[in-house]
C-alpha cells in the first residue's frame, strides 16, 4: 500500500497507556484515579508509550509504573528521583515521569527531592500525598498532621508537618501544582501541563488512603480551585502557597528557569570501549 494513502492514525486513548496488570490497591484508594489521570494526560498529549518512562520508588503509590504500558522502573525506596535524573540526562528524548508517595518522596527520599528541584532536570514528579505510609500499614509521614492520633503514634507525633509545595518552590522547581485524585480530569489537565512545561515540574496530588486515613474521604468537600492564575513570580507564589488552606487546586507556579541537561553527550561508546574502561 502506498504509505501516502495510509489513513492517519487515530489519536491514542487513555486505555492505550494502561497495562494488563490490575492494580492491587484497596478499593476506593485515590491512587486509582491518579493512574487514570496520568493515562489521560499521556493520551491528551498523544505521546508514544515507548517514548515515556515512569519511574518510582516503593509504596502503594509507587506501583504505578507496572500499571502503565510505558517503560517503567520500580526502584528503591526514596530513590526514584535519582534514577529518573540519570535516565533523563542519558536519554533526553524520553518523557520521564516520576511517581510515588509522601513517605517515599519526603522522608527517605527528601534529600533527592530538594536536589531534583534545585537541578531542574526536565522531569514531571507526581506525588500521591495521603499523609501516611499506606504500604507499611499506617505510620505517620512528613505530611501527617502533628495531632493525628493512632496506635502507631499515640497522641500524634507532635511534629510539624512538612510543606512540600513551599519546599519545592524554595528549592527551585520550575512548575508547582496541587491536584486532587477525586477530580481525575482536572488532575490529568494539570499533569499534561506539567509534562509540557520545561524543567522540574512538581505535582502534589491529594490522594486519600481510605484504609488508614478514611477521614480523608472528606477532602472532596474541602478542595476548591485556586482563585487566581499561576504566577511566574516565586515570591508571590510562596506567599500564596504558605497562606492557603492546603486545598487550593491548580497550577500555582510556572517559572522560566532553563532546565539542566547534563554534560554534552559523549560520542556513543561501543561495548569494547566500555570493557576497556573497566580493565584492571
Amino acid at each position: 500500500m502506498d504509505l501516502a494513502e495510509a489513513p492517519a492514525r487515530a489519536p491514542r486513548t487513555a486505555a492505550a497507556y494502561k497495562s494488563s496488570y490490575k492494580p492491587i490497591w484497596c478499593p476506593g484508594c485515590g491512587d486509582f484515579s491518579v493512574l487514570s489521570a496520568i493515562t489521560k494526560a499521556l493520551a491528551k498529549l498523544d505521546l508514544t508509550p515507548e517514548n515515556v518512562a515512569v519511574v518510582s520508588g516503593i509504596g502503594c503509590s509507587s506501583r504505578i509504573p507496572a500499571y502503565t504500558s510505558c517503560y517503567g522502573f520500580h526502584g528503591v525506596h526514596g530513590r526514584a528521583l535519582a534514577a529518573a535524573t540519570g535516565l533523563k540526562v542519558a536519554r533526553p528524548d524520553l518523557t520521564v515521569l516520576v511517581t510515588g508517595g509522601d513517605g517515599d518522596g519526603y522522608s527517605i527520599g527528601g534529600n533527592h527531592f530538594l536536589h531534583a528541584c534545585r537541578r531542574n532536570v526536565d522531569l514531571t514528579y507526581v506525588v500521591m500525598d495521603n499523609h501516611v505510609y499506606g504500604m507499611t500499614k499506617g505510620q505517620p509521614s512528613p505530611t501527617t498532621e502533628p495531632d493525628w492520633d493512632s496506635k502507631l503514634s499515640p497522641g500524634g507525633t507532635g511534629v510539624r508537618a512538612f510543606h512540600p509545595l513551599v519546599i519545592a518552590l524554595a528549592s527551585g522547581a520550575n512548575f508547582v501544582a496541587r491536584a486532587f485524585s477525586g477530580d481525575p480530569n482536572g488532575t490529568a489537565e494539570v499533569i499534561a501541563q506539567a509534562i509540557v512545561h520545561p524543567g522540574f515540574s512538581f505535582v502534589e496530588v491529594l490522594s486519600p488512603c481510605v484504609t488508614f486515613r478514611p477521614e480523608q474521604r472528606d477532602w472532596k468537600d474541602a478542595v476548591h480551585p485556586a482563585p487566581v492564575e499561576a504566577t511566574d513570580d516565586p515570591a508571590r507564589a510562596a506567599r500564596r502557597i504558605m497562606t492557603d488552606d492546603g486545598f487550593n487546586l491548580g497550577v500555582l507556579y510556572k517559572g522560566n528557569r532553563a532546565p539542566y541537561k547534563g554534560y554534552p553527550a559523549p560520542a556513543r561508546a561501543g561495548v569494547a570501549d566500555l570493557e576497556k574502561e573497566f580493565e584492571l
Binding site: P27, G28, G182, D183
Partner: peptide, 26 residues
Amino acid sequence: ALPLMPRIEFEGCEGPETTPADAVHY
C-alpha cells in the same frame, strides 16, 4: 468516533453517572 469537542465541564468533578472513586469498600 466522538467528534472533537471542547472539554465538557460537569458540575462537580466527574460526569453525573460516574460513581465517586472512593465510594467502594472491599
